[in-house]
Design a protein around this nucleic acid. Sequence first.
RNA 1: GCCGAGGUAGCUCAGUUGGCAGAGCACAGCCCUGAAAAGGCUGGUGUCGACAGUUCGAUUCUGUCCCUCGGCA
Length: 345
Amino acid sequence: MTEHPIHDNPVRAFDTSKRPLIVLVGPTAIGKSRVAIEVAKRLGTEVLTADSTQVYRGMDIGTDKPSLQERREVAHRLIDLVNPDEPFNVGEYRRHAVAEIDRLHQEHRIPLVVGGTGLYVRAVLRGLWPGPPVDWTLRRQLEQEAQERGLAALYQELGKVDLQTARRVHPNDLVKVLRALEIFRQTGLPASHVHKQHGFQERPFTALLLGLTMDRNALYRRIEERVHVEIEKGLVEETRRLLSQGYARSLTSMKSLGYRQMAGFLEGEYDFDEAVRRLKRDTRHFAKRQMTWFRKEPQIEWITVLPDESLSSIMTRTMGQVSQFLNQIQTGAIETKSCSSLTAK
RNA sequence: GCCGAGGUAGCUCAGUUGGCAGAGCACAGCCCUGAAAAGGCUGGUGUCGACAGUUCGAUUCUGUCCCUCGGCA
């Protein structure tokens, strides 16, 4: 492959005054990236990844980052933003994403957000309550308290300051109990109150939401194949390298799919076959959770992909939706449509 | 052929001093506002190998048979 400039895509100028945005979601291993690359080429735009693990540098195989070849064809953003031990969260993601979207709009291009991290996509489409992010000093303190007094005691405390959240969050859900208490200690306000005020009501963009879906069993078969491919590409070596670089298994990044299971094998907790078994299982469970999340997300145009469907066939249907959206943008028809549907609850 | 162990949920197995059975995994449904590939919740009727006997009642006890695994011939 000879060197090529990054943007050898045809340049197409769009009216971006309505802040148009195309979002492609779907469960892991369904084939989002290759569809995204095709769409991006045709629109002369870039891919903005909405993936909570691809933001980590050095975690390439397990997160299924696009290859260098693919990145030469189409620029991918929001990848490799931090090291695996640096804190990262939805808020950070949203800031980066909005900056990239703004930039593309200024270039009269339509950004293409692609990913499987539901919360990240939601934060882009509907905003995030403006309160303070995790205060890790306070969080560690709360974790310590949970150790000493028991989670039940903290849950009780939450019940006293924020009954609504306590009712909504299960007493066993450490992460959410601590976050709710943290919000109260930081702001003096109950999480339920500030969240209700925000209510994901922001609508910064005019978006087309596309969702890829597939027969469950067929998807599970693809997941198995994906796991084997990752192993062949060197997932074990990649994990070994990350561990030897000092990235602890307790890091959220290292607890993500692939690394968690391979680290267990490398540290002798179980054999290789068991690690592979677990990785397949956990990935299936993850795909299922993603489907649960996206299913209730409003306004998704679902594209059901057949088990062995060709890319061009998928593209025909995808581009059908995209062209319709572009027409609406250009003619202004979107204005009435999106306003009515976006404000409807 | 003989001896031993065993046949219970899709899988691995537990259990019932006789009152129509339960864990893990699988699988399914769900929750989520700065850890989100994280974290959490919920869901178990299955000829208890087959047939016969004892019993008010058998998956449990008895007998016969079938099957699986191991050992010995």
